[in-house]
């Protein structure tokens, strides 16, 4: 097939995405998930067409109620006529590679609403709570005129640093657990959140958790202009959601009003994105055999050459 035909086809797809075609967007996301580099020209175009949606990441331990909360958020935003996209990531089985993507069940009530696009993704071996194709999927969604994009991570409970690299507002969801409120807050969680919500406030221990989170955050984030708020919510009934949404809006306003902290965070996100793409390109060239010959590999296997030199050469090529 000629390059020209390819380009025409690509332009057509870009046009469809820009016009809001969920069908095309979802197919492109599948392509991205399958590491199909032939869609890169399309992604390049879409990236530069990005709108300015709220880009909210939600993370928290398994069963905290993330999906139930997303459902409430969709409902809230839809009441205000805002279009919402959701990327919901669930873990792949490390043994079979298969997955049961169950987040969508909790959002089923919006299934037939054309103003809502929910896409489930399996983590496919990616650590850190997201999927490898998250960045590509976001490029696609951001070009689609959604007012709000929500990213739900795998419930891993700690070290979900990935989410900070993709979302501009990070919501950390906690729930009252067994034992002491302080102990149940995992290390690392205090650094990543812009907003904290304690879900299942109908269960005992919620108040205490809210208080101790507030105390800890006050201690840890004195230097920032933004002190992360802590809200008690009940995701299954929607109690507390209005206030939560208000905080999400305030955080966005604070981003918009500029400030070096936010700007440097945006740059860090992009820096990470570039690294991620580099890694993928290298990965492909090494595995596709384009940059590496079998002779080279045999030489390294026999310890006649070293892998460091070859790697340096490959990065140099790039």
């Amino acid at each position: 097939m000629s390059q020209l035909a390819d380009k025409a086809k690509g332009d057509k797809l870009v046009g469809e995405v820009l016009a809001g075609s969920i069908r095309t967007a979802s197919r492109l996301i599948s392509r991205a998930e399958a590491c199909d580099s032939s869609i890169t020209p399309i992604l390049k175009q879409l990236f530069c067409k990005a709108g300015d949606p709220v880009l909210l990441g939600i993370t928290g331990p398994p069963g905290a109620g993330k999906s139930t909360l997303v459902n409430q958020l969709i409902q809230h935003y839809r009441k205000h006529d805002k279009c919402v996209a959701v990327l919901a990531v669930d873990p792949s089985s490390p043994f079979s590679g298969g997955a049961i993507l169950g987040d969508r069940v909790r959002m089923n009530q919006h299934a037939a609403d054309p103003g809502v696009f929910i896409r489930s993704m399996a983590s496919r071996g990616q650590l850190g709570g997201l999927a490898k194709a998250t960045g590509d999927a976001l490029s696609i969604l951001q070009a689609m005129n959604f007012d709000v994009i929500i990213l739900e991570t795998v419930g891993v409970g700690q070290s979900e640093v990935e989410i900070v690299r993709h979302a501009s507002s990070v919501l950390v969801l906690q729930m009252p657990g067994a034992g002491d409120g302080v102990q149940s807050v995992k290390a690392g969680i205090l650094e990543i959140g812009d907003i904290y919500a304690v879900n299942k406030s109908d269960l005992p221990g919620a108040d205490k958790l809210v208080t101790s989170l507030r105390e800890m955050l006050q201690l840890s984030s004195k230097m920032h202009p933004w002190l992360p708020p802590v809200v008690a919510i009940q995701a299954n009934t929607g109690a507390g959601i209005d206030r939560l949404v208000q905080h999400i809006g305030e955080h966005r306003d604070s981003i918009r009003s500029g400030g070096e902290v936010h700007a440097s965070r945006a740059r860090e996100r992009v820096r990470y994105r570039v690294v991620e793409i580099c890694r993928q390109l290298l990965n492909e060239s090494v595995f596709s055999g384009a940059g590496v010959t079998d002779t080279q590999l045999s030489a390294i296997a026999n310890h006649q050459q070293d892998p460091y030199t070859l790697a340096e050469k490959l990065v140099g090529v790039l």
């Binding site: 009530q109 919006h110 009940q234 299954n236 009934t237 929607g238 109690a239």
Partner: peptide, 10 residues
Amino acid sequence: AHGYSYDPFN
């Protein structure tokens, strides 16, 4: 009255 939608199927 309990905070849920009128029609569970919406």
